[in-house]
């Protein structure tokens, strides 16, 4: 790649980075402000006071955070190391991972949750298990693809210079794969926060409770619930993108 091309890419990343840094929180702020205006135009419903109070909203918001971040934490802690192991060791599993990841796209998240319900009943645990299963696939797929996508010549030269298998993995392969790994993590975070909204159908709690209690009854409740979930998803993705910027080596991209 020519210097000019690299510079061009650098500039583009820079401008995108400024956009990311400020545009997302700004847009979320504007969106929330606008929805206050919209809120006033909507007819109040009889159920509003029971839902639109700080106790109920806070409990559902905290519940949503817990569902999402516990699931995401498990996925990240299990998925990345497992993906690395599959990429370097278990060839037969690689095909399986890609197959499942593709199949997983065709299976609806709500279906997975209700399957878990059929197996384990109502509650937060089946919801979390369902979210973990659903969120694991993008992380596994991207980790495996990232590690396997590292130029074999780079690995050969690392080994040829006397790096141990572990040194090559930690200081060469994983950093080079990190952009793709992070892309997988971000996909999963958004997926998990979104699917957690459906957790209310199997008794998982979360902000889905708010939206569901407004459907057919009060547009105001639906609006509040939807805006809260949307803001949460956007801000969480934004926060993870900041982590990504700090962790992924600057000049490589997926």
């Amino acid at each position: 790649m020519s210097v000019a091309a690299v510079t061009a890419r650098g500039t583009r990343r820079l401008s995108l980075s400024w956009l990311r840094l400020f545009a997302v929180p700004a847009a979320v702020g504007i969106g929330i402000a606008a929805s206050f205006g919209v809120f006033q135009t909507l007819a109040p419903g009889p159920a509003d006071s029971g839902v639109l109070n700080s106790t109920f909203l806070e409990s559902r918001f905290v519940g949503h955070l817990a569902l999402s971040f516990i699931s995401f934490g498990i996925v990240a802690l299990v998925g990345v190391p497992l993906g690395v192991l599959i990429a370097i060791g278990a060839r037969p599993f690689r095909v399986l991972v890609f197959l499942l990841a593709n199949l997983g796209q065709a299976v609806p998240g709500i279906g997975i949750l209700v399957l878990l319900y059929a197996w384990l009943g109502l509650g937060a645990e089946p919801t979390i298990i369902g979210l973990v299963i659903f969120g694991l696939l993008p992380v596994l797929r991207n980790t495996v693809a990232g590690i396997n996508g590292v130029d074999p010549a780079v690995i050969e030269s690392a080994r040829g210079m006397g790096m141990t298998r572990l040194q090559a993995l930690l200081s060469v392969e994983i950093p080079l794969a990190s952009a793709l790994i992070f892309a997988g993590l971000r996909t999963t975070l958004v997926l998990v926060i979104g699917t957690a909204t459906l957790g209310n159908f199997i008794g998982g709690g979360g902000l889905g409770d708010v939206i569901a209690s407004g459907i057919n009854r009060s547009d105001r409740i639906v609006l509040v619930g939807a805006v809260m979930v949307a803001a949460l998803a956007l801000l969480a993705d934004w926060a993870l993108s900041l982590v990504e910027r700090a962790v992924v080596p600057k000049r490589i991209s997926a």
């Binding site: 919209v38 909507l42 958004v190 926060i193 979104g194 699917t195 909204t197 459906l198 902000l207 889905g208 939206i211 569901a212 407004g214 459907i215 547009d219 639906v222 609006l223 619930g225 939807a226 805006v227 979930v229 949307a230 998803a233 956007l234 993705d237």
Partner: peptide
């Protein structure tokens, strides 16, 4: 695509 589907559908239903 970052917006959760239940939230988006609910919002649009208004």
């Amino acid at each position: 695509v970052t917006l959760p589907s239940f939230a988006l559908f609910g919002l649009l239903s208004i």
